[in-house]
Simulated assay, not measured.
Amino acid sequence: MTDRLPPAPAQAPSLAQLRALIAVVDAGGFGEAAAELGVSQSSLSEAVARLEALAGRPLLRRTPAGTFATEAGLRTLGHARAAVQAAADALLAAQEEGALAGTLRVASFRSTATHLLPPALAAFRARHPGVTVILLDAESCGGGPEAVRAGRVDAGLIVADEAPDLRLTPLVQDDYLFAAPSARGTHPVTLADLAAQPLILPPLRDSCHRRVRGYLTARGVPLTHIMEVEQDSVTLSMVGHGLGVTIMPRLALLPLPPGLVVLPLPEPLTRPLALAVLPQRAALPLLRAFTGAVLETLGKMGTPNGTGEVQEPAAPLLRTTSN
């Protein structure tokens, strides 16, 4: 036994200091972060300096190309995001589901934001008028899975098999279809058809491009005539003018312009869509209520059957032609 007291624990960083680190890394610079937070650059620099003093090492590296996290900063960043998120979630966890309030940030593909989410958002707002929902384009916020992991959004509509580490609620299986000018006719699509004309796809960074590329590569289809186009509407216009063909998810083809025919691929290709949240946040009343609203709405549309598989809707969103 000893009368000596254990050493005092090291001083813990403040949430303001952790927020400062996160803001500078996400913005890529002190000036940009200060503008986004609405604070002075000097106060932001002071907060980061105090955090670095507590850590005993630099957490940020300034370069002509911007400000980046050091290796120690990267290790700190994940815990900083979790701490800041947990502090906010402490109050969200205390809410009652019948009186929710706050802000809900949702990332989505443009196609799912157009055709799946609006009725769910309307139902959610009717039940929870105190919640403000901000809908963000998944590509513009760094990709749905990454935005959820980093805490930039609360929930994201994503391709399920791209983020097994997140808590996933299966929604629909969105099948990919072949689109070509109507003059092509409706005879079944072959692998030779997929190699015969220029193939118009979104940029390589897009998950749909990578999914289609993997499908074709696995089947020995040469990828020598691929054109990359950012906007789905531009792609469909180009296809309509005979500049190539495309392979797109069913939802992304809506509304289908005149002069096009859509057909099943020789072998099925799908993207399993799911609603993703951080596992430790899934039980929050706000996220439970939103997930429930999405599932209930899709069920009324005749889309999911509760296991993530697709049932044929009473009025299909887009009919395909096959022989």
Rank of each mutant, 00 (worst) to 15 (best):
T224R: 14
T2G: 14
L260F: 03
G78L: 13
L168R: 06
P222I: 11
S40R: 02
A72E: 14
A23N: 08
T217P: 02
T132H: 06
A23H: 02
L121C: 06
S45F: 03
A80S: 08
L287V: 05
A252W: 02
V84T: 12
L59K: 06
T63R: 13
F109C: 04
L273H: 05
P129R: 03
M227W: 03
V277I: 11
Q41A: 14
A195H: 04
V153S: 10
R210L: 15
A276V: 09
A315R: 08
D154K: 06
A138W: 03
I134M: 09
T217L: 15
L204C: 04
L37P: 01
T103M: 05
I134S: 08
V189R: 04
P6R: 10
P316K: 00
L236Y: 06
P268L: 04
R81S: 02
V310W: 00
R213I: 11
A126N: 06
L269P: 02
A47Y: 06
L254V: 07
L251G: 06
A107W: 05
L201G: 07
E312Q: 02
T103A: 11
A12T: 13
G73K: 09
T2Q: 12
L275V: 13
P13G: 07
A283H: 14
A195V: 09
A315G: 01
R184E: 13
P164R: 08
L318E: 03
A101K: 11
Q11G: 08
A101W: 10
P188M: 00
V148H: 02
